Amino acid sequence: MDATLSGRQAGTGLIAARKPTGRVSDPVFVGILWTSGIVVLLLLGLIIAMLFEGGLPAIQEFGLSFIWSTTWNPVTEVFGAGVMVFGTVFSAVIAVIIALPLSFGIAFFLTEIAPGPLRRPIGVAIQLLAAIPSIIYGMWGFFVIVPLMAAYVQPPLIEWLGPLPLIGALFQGPPLGAGMLTAGLIMAIMILPFITAMFVEVLESVPPMIKESAYGVGATTYEVYRNVSVPYGRTAMVGAVMLGLGRALGETMAVTFVIGNATRMSASLFAPGATIASTIANEFPEASTGSLKLQSLLELGFILFVISFIVLALSRLLVRSRLKG
């Protein structure tokens, strides 16, 4: 009994000795966490303020029409962001359209079809695609994909689909190789690993009991995938697609190599164009300090930030609506 009492007294003394340390370390820990959150908001606010303040003279000079004006002429110092906004959104949508079915197919293959020894090599290969620098994608696209598109892809598409009444406008023009479709294809390969990795995580999180129940009532593999796995993880999949879209919107170097960098707007998938990021990368070194061109480029950066914010907000709304449903 004396030993028990002495043990309790020792434990009480240990707790009492630890309390002062905890009282000191806990506020410090909470303060560090608050500081981390405030630093993130502060950095974001400073970036927004820098872009807005730097580009404000361009808006004052050209008005709100700067956003949709299609004129970009450094010689006459008349600038508009319409071509770049169109190219940014158009090429990013093309990338998502190409990457989405490929991501679904790869994720389903890895989670349901592929044998065990084959899953790991394919998974590692997909992860390696995400590790390749964007400038390497751009060089590969310029030296390999652009000639292939000009020689073997664009000419037959122009011949077969160009004369069609409704969609023909998308497949008209000379087969230059570089253009919106090529840029979208390169970006699709770049965002493919991100979307696929999240799809795999989502599909692997589906409870096996649910899928086994579907198989037990006679469902095929495709029916289980369509009616069980995809609905179960639809919310996270929407977030994955929006993440890929946001990644494509801000891509710079790879797009600069293969989009053609022409500041004119066209409905053709084969026509050269420009994005906000590629225009900034091309023309920022030539813009002198305090010039209207530099201010217009900063305003382009602010517009790109607004577009990315809108995409993020839409993704949050979609995810929230799915959760409520």
Rank of each mutant, 00 (worst) to 15 (best):
D2N: 12
A10M: 08
P20S: 06
V24G: 00
S36E: 05
V39R: 00
G45V: 05
I48W: 05
L51F: 06
A58K: 05
Q60L: 13
W68V: 13
S69Y: 01
V75S: 13
F79C: 10
F79D: 06
G82M: 05
V85A: 12
F86Y: 12
F90S: 08
F90D: 03
S91K: 08
I94H: 07
I98C: 07
G105A: 14
G105I: 10
A114D: 02
I126T: 09
Q127Y: 00
P133I: 07
I136G: 03
Y137F: 15
V144L: 10
P155E: 08
P156R: 09
I158T: 11
L164M: 14
P165I: 05
L170R: 02
G177V: 01
G179D: 01
G184Y: 03
E204Y: 03
S213C: 13
A214Y: 01
G218R: 09
Y225E: 04
N227Y: 11
V228S: 11
S229Q: 13
R234V: 02
G239K: 06
G244S: 08
L245R: 04
R247P: 09
T256Q: 04
F257V: 00
I259E: 03
T279P: 00
T279R: 12
A281S: 14
S288L: 13
S288K: 13
L297Y: 09
I303C: 11
L304D: 01
L304P: 11
I307F: 06
S308V: 12
L312D: 14
R322A: 15
L323T: 10
